[in-house]
Simulated assay, not measured.
Amino acid sequence: MAQTDLHKKLHAFIEKGISELTIPEAPESLYKPYSYTMGLGGKRIRPYLVLLSCGLCGGRIEEALPSALAVEILHNFTLVHDDIMDSADTRRGQPSVFKKWDQNIAILSGDVMFADAFKQLEFYGREDSFSKKDYAEIHSTFISATITLCEGQALDMDFVERERVDHNEYVEMIKGKTSALLACSLKMGAISAHASENQISSLFNLGMEMGIAFQIQDDLLDAIADPEKFGKKVCGDIYEGKKTYLTILALERANKQQSQKIETVLAANSPTQHDVEDVLQLMKDLNVISDIKKEVDLHYSNAINSLDLFRDSDYKQELKNLLIFLKNRDH
C-alpha cells in the first residue's frame, strides 16, 4: 500500500507518542521488558485506526492519542502473554520477552503494561472538553474489548481440545481475538472526536467486519496463496492439523468418506504432500474455497459501505484505501 502524506504524518505521530511514554527505569526487571516490547515496532494498525477514525469524524487527533496509545500498549501486552502461552522464542524477528528474560518477568511486565494501557485513558477524565459520559464510554469500550479479546483467546484454546467446531463458533472466536480491538480502536477514535451515535456505531461495525474478513482471508490464503509471495509453506495449516474456517466448513459439508479422509490427514504427524493436496481438492469440490472467497468479499464490502455515512475527506479515503488494499492482498 502506497504511503500517503497523511499515512506518514499519523504514523510519525504514533511513534512520537510511544517514544514519549513515561516508563520508569526501576525496577529494571519490570520496566525494561516493557520498553523493549514497545520498541520492537510493528504495523501499529490499531492506533492508526484510532487516529483515522478521529479525523474522519472531524476531531483533533491530539485528543485521540491517549486512546491510540492505550490500544497499542494493550495489544503488545497480549503479545507478551501469548508468547508465554505458546512458549514462543521470537517476536517480530527478535527474542520474545519470555525468551530474553523468563516466564515470571514476562508475566509481571505484561501486567504493568496492562495497567499502563488503562492509565492512558485518565486524559479523558482530566480534560474539560470531555464529559463524564464521554469518559465513561471510552472506559466501557476499552474494558468490553479487553474482556471480549480474552474470551476469544479462551475459545481458540478450547477449540484445540475439541473434536468438532461449528463455523459459527469459529466466527465468534474471530470476533474476540481479531475484531474486538479493531472495532474498539475505531469506536474510541470516534468518541474522542465527539462523534454522533450513528457515526460511532458505523465505525464499530466497520471494525468488526474488517476483523472477520481479515482472519478468514488469512485462513484462505494459507491454502491458495502463491508460495513465492506468501513467505511460508502453503497449506501449512493442513500440515499442522489446525482447525481453520476452511477445514471446519469442509467437515460440515463432507460425506462420511470425505470426513474420514480430512480427519485422518489433519490428525497425521507428518502428512504427505499428496494427502494434503487431496484435502485441498476436497475443499474445492465442496465449494469451500469459492464460498469463502465470496464471504471475505462480503465482509470487506460491508466494512467499506460503513463509510457511506461520512463526508469525503483525506481520512475517509485513507481508511477506504486500507480496506481495499486488505481486500485485494494475495499474501
Results as ranks from 00 to 15, higher is better:
residue 137 E to S: 08
residue 135 Y to F: 15
residue 91 R to F: 14
residue 131 S to Y: 05
residue 14 I to G: 05
residue 105 I to Y: 12
residue 193 A to C: 04
residue 52 L to V: 10
residue 6 L to Y: 14
residue 89 D to H: 12
residue 261 K to W: 00
residue 78 T to L: 12
residue 154 A to C: 04
residue 113 M to Y: 05
residue 293 K to M: 12
residue 133 K to Q: 07
residue 10 L to W: 11
residue 288 V to D: 10
residue 140 S to L: 09
residue 271 P to S: 09
residue 131 S to A: 08
residue 26 A to C: 01
residue 94 Q to A: 14
residue 80 V to S: 05
residue 112 V to T: 11
residue 200 I to S: 05
residue 188 M to W: 00
residue 193 A to F: 06
residue 66 P to G: 00
residue 186 L to E: 04
residue 98 F to P: 01
residue 227 P to M: 05
residue 148 T to F: 00
residue 141 T to S: 14
residue 107 I to Y: 04
residue 123 F to Y: 15
residue 311 R to Y: 02
residue 158 D to N: 13
residue 73 I to Y: 14
residue 9 K to L: 09
residue 143 I to M: 06
residue 282 L to D: 09
residue 287 N to K: 13
residue 173 M to E: 07
residue 258 Q to N: 02
residue 247 T to A: 11
residue 273 Q to A: 11
residue 7 H to E: 10
residue 208 M to L: 14
residue 9 K to H: 10
residue 270 S to C: 12
residue 305 N to E: 12
residue 226 D to N: 15
residue 258 Q to R: 04
residue 160 V to H: 03
residue 135 Y to M: 08
residue 45 I to K: 05
residue 79 L to I: 15
residue 212 I to N: 11
residue 143 I to L: 11
residue 134 D to S: 08
residue 157 M to F: 13
residue 74 L to N: 01
residue 121 L to N: 03
residue 282 L to E: 08
residue 221 L to I: 07
residue 117 A to G: 13
residue 142 F to T: 03
residue 41 G to S: 08
residue 217 Q to S: 04
residue 47 P to Q: 06
residue 31 Y to W: 15
residue 88 A to Q: 00
residue 282 L to W: 01
residue 164 R to L: 10
residue 112 V to R: 11
